[in-house]
Write a protein that binds this DNA or RNA. Sequence first.
DNA 1: GAAATTCTACCGAACGGTAAGTAAAAATCC
DNA 2: GGATTTTTACTTACCGTTCGGTAGAATTTC
Lengths: 198, 198
Amino acid sequence: MARTETKKNLDRAQEIYLTAAQLFVERGMDSTSVADIADRLKMTKAGLYYYFTSKQELLYQIVTLGLDSVKDEVLDPARKIKNAEQRLEFIILNHARLAAEGNHAVIIVSHEMNALSFKQREAMLERRREYFEFVRGTLVELKTEGKLRDIDITTATFTLFGMILWLPRWFRPTGKLSVKKVCQDVCAMALKGLLRSH
Amino acid sequence: MARTETKKNLDRAQEIYLTAAQLFVERGMDSTSVADIADRLKMTKAGLYYYFTSKQELLYQIVTLGLDSVKDEVLDPARKIKNAEQRLEFIILNHARLAAEGNHAVIIVSHEMNALSFKQREAMLERRREYFEFVRGTLVELKTEGKLRDIDITTATFTLFGMILWLPRWFRPTGKLSVKKVCQDVCAMALKGLLRSH
DNA sequence: GAAATTCTACCGAACGGTAAGTAAAAATCC
DNA sequence: GGATTTTTACTTACCGTTCGGTAGAATTTC
């Protein structure tokens, strides 16, 4: 009756979340019906509801997955880097990599959130804010070191995110540009835009 | 019965398009029902259908409005600027201004297009492509002049658009940052990121 | 009074979600 | 270790609501 969190169950749940995430990125959440998700997984709509209680909760699970990815692969490792300039470079390169590789759950975090409940949205915004403040803090450090150009730090932080988060909109890993090359270029452009030349 | 394009009619139609555009930006197109648009305009759903034949066509009208704005206020004036560096600065400053001021029709152009028909989408993508190629061409010019940094030009163009088009996601003109200041900062950051220092 | 504009009242389709049922696997009992 | 019970992982069939869209009447404008 109620769902128990066995290992196998978690694997299947993740598979479902990732498939849904892919569809949400492809066509948007509102244009993706629960039946569409079921079709791609070759099961029925009702079968899906064994794994989540509402479409809203499904979205929340996906968003959580995306936030976990950024935490594990960008935020936590970056915290260990003392030097602010090196840290900034690490953040840009690795967040850009996640975005360029087409990690659907990560991509959704910067998109759909109107569909979440108030509490869910607050929880998610808080985690996002934590990450934002960490990056902004790195820029503040660089400012006190005299390395940052003379532009508003908040504007700089948001605009940096714009450069990174725009990647999934145009970049396809199948083209002639590699993920690595494109991340390096975005990183170079961002760093030159942010830091004084010396 | 059928709609004639009188002057007054056009004014009212534009008012309706802009109100719809605002709602589409606020909540997304799929989450905005035609009845929602009618409510904000203090009329009924059926009354709205006097001005367009389908929700799809309404979106297309809005997208056309947005593309016209960019053409009139960015593309056409920029074509008259001979110097590539000055032209690039003009493009960034003015496109950023449109985005930061909250021109809803302009904002939609970079968002919703899955909802369009194939023909509509092609027509709109063609106009967008024209603008993209113009900006890219400016970067190519700067490259031949030896002024551009050593990064892939396509990546540079898309990333520049990311910086500009991300603006509406975070910036609100009511805060302590002015539209002018934020556009100048974004422009400075972009130019430093793109051009060699001399 | 004719044309332009907006309303009332409704339709059919699609959607999110649920109730009831079930085959197969797993766990429990003796 | 064979029989019995329980749980897992779904399915079929359906419900209530909302949505885009329409026909035709009513109202407003000139």
